[in-house]
């Protein structure tokens, strides 16, 4: 059996006297690809932040490789939601990727090993020719690739991607999913997504979040189970071509 990497045991998270997550019990294993789905405000990003150690559970315990989250920064490569960035910030692609090499004891310049790792990560996401370009001048899809390279550069155990295909066009979305599938062969991947058409195809297991978290194998995810999570009628469309995607609602 694959090694357990992350365990959430009876985890509650309360914000403003409201339960965001309640009694979450899940385990994630090495080299598996888990997608997190759920309606807006269901607690998907909160779940991710609890795993990363950015938030502390109100009740229960979380362990990452047997330690408290946040203690082992090298474990995670995190790709946050795209919309947060200041488009006027003066920073180039290479510098953004190098941020993934930062450690609490980093002082002065990065060393040549860090720089080589950043070049390699840029090559993996096919953006090496753009390394000196200003981050602000990149397209949405290119920015996401840069952020994935930043997450890869520290050679993480787990890759966490928070809605990486939000705000990108269909072609870019398709390319990003191909890249994520390639990466899932090397890393444990946790993907937050709203794309119910693609998620069952590329994931080993799916965490359905709506205050509780219910784990499904990809074969178990049906229109009925999604309806229970989203509390409304929803079609699950498995498709080959993204242009045929049918939006649920």
């Amino acid at each position: 059996m694959a090694k357990e990497i992350i365990r959430l045991n009876q985890v509650d998270f309360i914000y403003d006297n409201e339960f965001v997550l309640e009694n979450v019990n899940i385990s994630l294993y090495r080299k598996e690809m888990v997608s997190i789905i759920g309606p807006n405000g269901s607690g998907k990003t909160t779940l991710l932040k609890l795993i990363l150690g950015l938030l502390k559970p109100t009740k229960g315990s979380i362990t990452v490789l047997g330690q408290l989250p946040g203690k082992e920064q090298q474990v995670f490569g995190y790709v946050p939601q795209y919309a947060q960035y200041d488009s006027l910030f003066p920073v180039n692609v290479f510098d953004v990727v190098l941020m993934g090499c930062l450690k609490p004891r980093t002082f002065g310049m990065f060393n040549s090993r860090d720089k080589n790792s950043a070049l390699y990560a840029l090559d993996v996401v096919h953006l090496l020719p753009l390394k000196n370009r200003s981050f602000a001048t990149l397209s949405g899809g290119q920015r996401q690739r840069v952020l994935i390279a930043r997450a890869l550069v520290s050679k993480p155990e787990v890759l966490l991607l928070d809605e990486p295909t939000a705000n990108v066009d269909r072609k870019t979305e398709q390319d990003l999913y191909v890249l994520i599938q390639e990466l899932s062969k090397i890393y444990t991947v946790i993907l937050v997504s709203h794309d119910l058409g693609v998620v069952p195809k590329i994931s080993d297991r799916i965490a359905c979040v709506n205050r509780n978290v219910i784990m499904h194998l990809k074969s178990e995810l049906t229109g009925q189970s999604i309806q229970e999570i989203y509390s409304c009628s929803m079609d699950l469309v498995h498709h080959v071509n993204h242009s045929q995607r049918k939006e649920g609602g």
């Binding site: 995670f76 946050p80 960035y85 941020m99 450690k103 990065f110």
Partner: peptide, 17 residues
């Protein structure tokens, strides 16, 4: 490098410790 990261993406800088 830390000031750059803290200014550009404080949440990510926090994750990096």
């Amino acid at each position: 490098n830390k000031i750059l990261a803290v200014s550009f993406d404080p949440e990510y800088a926090r994750i990096r410790g």
